[in-house]
Amino acid sequence: MAEVLDVALRLAVIVIAFLTLPLIVGQTEHKAMAHMQSRLGPMYAGGFHGWAQLIADGVKFVQKEDIIPAAADRRVFALAPAVALVPYLVVMAVIPVGPGLVGADLDAGLFFALAVLGVGVLGSIMAGWSSANKYSVLGGMRSAAQLMAYELPLVLAASSVAMAAGTLSLPGIASAWQWWWLPWQAIGAVVFFVAGLAELRRPPFDMPIADSEIIMGPMTEYTGIRFALFLLSEYVGIVVLSALTTVLFLGGWQGPLLPGPVWTLLKVFALAFVVIWVRVSFPRLRADQLQKLAWVGLVPLALLQLALTGVVKVLLAA
């Protein structure tokens, strides 16, 4: 009985985190971006500085008509937002927030997380293909091409940390982390975070969405709640990427004075803020420029990091 209760409690916490953290990140984006652009952002919904803006948005999206284009592949079209969103929820289950505080402690947690993360992109490709819209097809193709660019550096950078810690378990990596890993794994951290931004299709790597070029790409034909699910998946994605970076490269819950989970959340939000900041500051790259960045820049850097990790590891063992 206690075991069932334990699992139920963990799942409940994950679902709550899944529902609230992205909204907090989204609201932070509204406000931080507004203030960086000398605006106020939402000020009315909910009374205090527009805190309920995203909830109001959600209510609006639910009420809107759900339009499926006549020429669309109906089932794929309807399924795509779920395919985009659910993988992130699943990944959240294996990310530890404190010692022992994890939805499911898998031995190969890192492997699991990266594998599942890749599925999310399928949603975008499915949406692009099934929409029967030329802009969407272009967006879907860009998504697929982008997948080729960032997946390798992402995995290479993550495997460097796994090598350093000698385990694939996410809680294992976080507890093995020591402060001097920060300079040691710095290159890997940057590569992982940049490749992660590309995975999320966030600026400056938002060419599959590119509202001024291909009009939101795969999402062109989506309305109402399905469109909202795509948006939500973007923000859950930010949370997941920030959390993974925290666990792998920033020591997860480790930190002085404050309790572990607080440290995890602080680091996650700091990274999420960087994601937002980057969006405000940078123009968009071109698809082929991302490919170049990935293959000429990120992959060699990730390999360098891998070699560095190996050498230090051998020297330490000797």
Partner: peptide, 13 residues
């Protein structure tokens, strides 16, 4: 022009 290239801030300036 920057807005078209994906930089959303300059337009406010």
């Amino acid at each position: 022009y920057p807005l078209e290239l994906g930089a959303i801030t300059p337009v406010f300036y």
